[in-house]
């Protein structure tokens, strides 16, 4: 991890002496886990975001109480982005704060970046990594194999530690990071969406279990609706159709809680009349 960070540093001749040690920047990555500490709908991550970076500003504005008040107040403004990507943003803004860049510039940049970064982060972490890692480790665990949870934990432990190189990346790239983020954000979330949706398609087929036990006809001409009709049309057609029914309801602005209720009512009804 450290070598990765220093490699990034090598790309750019060190233009100034940093007041922060390597260790302190690593700790910024760890401290970025605090952003959701005082989460509320009003300011979202703002208090935790400020808390995580406070020791660093205290160092920068050691002899400037006015500066500290200013930076704390500025950062108490609304912010909501993807938690795993905060280290980059923190590192980047810390460089600027350290260089005493105009406060309005820093604030403007923060506000310009947190939205797009939320988009990339959600696409990568929640919609791609979570279904893949969760799906694979759950399918191992389902059979009673403890490797499932171990695998899941290992992947997320790795992602936890990856906050450290990300903080170094943001800190060392400085303002160069802005171009990198803006250039690549669309391409990356496009590619992540493709991967994510392919996986979700696979998950629907593998993990939504709906199968009719209903048989129709009488005497010798009894046919199983599932095996001799639906499976002949397309296997898993029921799960696929049901997901899209729920999707349609969501598009109609139905609360997700109702979808859970609909699912339970349907399942219990199907069980009661003996169709499933």
């Amino acid at each position: 991890m450290a070598s990765e960070a220093s490699e990034v540093g090598k790309n750019k001749p060190s233009k100034r002496k940093s007041i922060f040690t390597n260790h302190e920047i690593s700790m910024l990555g760890i401290r970025s886990n605090l952003v959701q500490a005082s989460f509320s709908y009003e300011r979202m991550h703002a208090p935790g975001w400020t808390w995580a970076q406070l020791p660093y500003w205290e160092k920068i504005y050691k002899d400037d109480p006015k500066g500290l008040k200013r930076v704390m107040t500025d950062n108490m403004e609304f912010i909501n982005s993807s938690p795993p990507l905060y280290p980059i943003l923190m590192g980047l803004l810390l460089t600027m704060e350290e260089d005493h860049v105009e406060p309005t510039t820093i604030k403007g940049l923060k506000n310009a970046l947190f939205g797009p970064m939320a988009g990339i982060g959600d696409a990568i972490f929640w919609f791609t990594i979570m279904p893949i890692v969760g799906g694979i480790s759950a399918s191992i665990a389902k059979n009673g194999n403890a490797l499932g949870p171990v695998l899941f934990f290992a992947v997320y432990l790795f992602l936890f530690w990856s906050r450290i190189p990300l903080a170094h990346l943001g800190y060392n790239l400085g303002t160069k990071a802005i171009d990198v983020i803006q250039e690549n954000s669309k391409v990356i979330s496009h590619a992540a969406s493709i991967l994510g949706l392919t996986v979700i398609g696979g998950l629907i087929a593998s993990y939504v279990k709906m199968s009719l036990t209903l048989k129709i006809g009488a005497g010798n001409s009894v046919i199983s609706l599932q095996k001799q009709l639906l499976d002949k049309i397309f296997p898993n057609i029921l799960p696929f159709a049901f997901v899209f029914l729920l999707y349609w309801l969501l598009k109609k602005k139905v609360n997700p809680i109702w979808l859970i209720v609909v699912t339970f009512v349907l399942a219990i009804l199907m069980s009661f009349i003996g169709w499933m």
Partner: peptide
């Protein structure tokens, strides 16, 4: 049965 169908809710939300 509901436990088996429940993933559909999550997938619909992702979609």
């Amino acid at each position: 049965l509901a436990g088996g169908i429940l993933p559909a809710v999550g997938f619909a939300m992702l979609l």
